[in-house]
Design a binder for these strands. Structure first.
Lengths: 194, 194
DNA sequence: TTACAACAGTTATAGCCTGTAACTGTAGTT
DNA sequence: AACTACAGTTACAGGCTATAACTGTTGTAA
């Protein structure tokens, strides 16, 4: 079989894996990462649970693929925005938008880590792909003044400040508080880029 | 039986509940909140699992008690610091110290929430007890200048910025990055209070 | 001081999950 | 057309939460 051509077997496997991922995200959006169940997914797909172990060797392997997928999605988004006209402002905007649209994805990447679970090296690479456009953005802004903070320092601050607002909002900690998170976010972005 | 006096039965119940909580935190520090198991705790205590249901009607009830306990601990700390000489700087310092000492407690309060789990009203009250000293601190700083942000806005910003640094550090997202989170934190505090 | 009721802790069981082993039948492939 | 690779099955081991029904102890009140 030609290596580049996908035979029917491989094609079928890919389709099943994709459907599993879709249903996994559905489950996670409803009941959180801890409720992710291969059994439940299998049942939804009209299979028995052991059948799915042909496609994912463990629940952890599925989780890893979901994490990598989410990282890649976010990395693509940030790279695209970084290259666009709005630059860092665009990145900031897109970041919050993405997080609010897919809270479970954001929380899976930046929320409470699963102790004992070690992210594969691929995740580190993707995390750097997300950070790189921010670094590049601040490097481009850099003026000659010696007393201004370095662009890595500004990039880090950019990240932590935006994450501070986003993560609390996504985790629902602003519920019941009378104020507009969007306004706070805009103000923070303005201060970071001003 | 006098209402204020604790009989032997009540005393024993209290001791068991306390021991359960201690062991629960031990478990959570090692394996995270999702690994919290009444069965395992019971075994450690030389009991069978159903026995523990005399003391906690469900795993969720135990979790609720742990969350409320953590909130109360943090609220006490923040109130104490707020009343101390260092004021807001002291609160900031204590907050990071507490989070790094008890990462699981911090993550349980501010990390990924369990979907479907609704924090009891008591938690909201405690969350306000944590926020109040910060609000008071900025209200005290307030100058006459009309263009400066209001103290609620500054308080909120104080919270989100500090949380941004702390939560990423506690979740291990700074591992492998070459820089000092403590320095970043100090800088952020200085900017917030300067 | 004794009688009894309240209650701690037990075993048994139902129901959910992950994951493995052994088997069967079908569908690509040669 | 024959065969083998593999998808999917049932059966099972072991872990968890939680309930039900039972037993034995102990605080307590008459």
């Amino acid at each position: 079989m030609d290596e580049t051509t996908e035979g029917p077997r491989a094609r079928y496997r890919r389709q099943i894996r994709e459907e599993v991922q879709v249903r996994a995200w559905e489950q996670m959006s409803q009941d959180g990462a801890s409720a992710l169940s291969l059994k439940a997914i299998a049942t939804q797909m009209g299979m028995t649970a052991p059948a799915l172990y042909r496609y994912y060797s463990s629940r952890d392997e599925l989780l890893t693929e979901l994490i990598l997928g989410a990282y890649a999605e976010l990395a693509d988004l940030v790279e695209r925005e970084g290259a666009g006209d709005a630059g860092l402002a665009g990145i900031a905007e897109a970041l919050r938008g993405w997080a609010l649209t897919h809270p479970q994805k954001y929380l899976l990447l930046y929320g409470t880590p699963v102790p004992g679970y070690h992210a594969p090296d691929a995740a580190t690479v993707l995390a750097q792909r997300i950070f790189a456009p921010i670094l590049a953005g601040f490097a481009a802004l850099e003026g000659g003044s010696a007393e201004a903070p370095s662009s890595p320092a500004r990039s880090l601050r950019f990240w932590t400040r935006l994450h501070g607002v986003i993560s609390l909002e996504v985790a629902g900690h602003f519920r019941g508080v009378e104020f507009d998170p969007a306004q706070l976010y805009r103000d923070e972005v303005a201060l970071l880029l001003g």
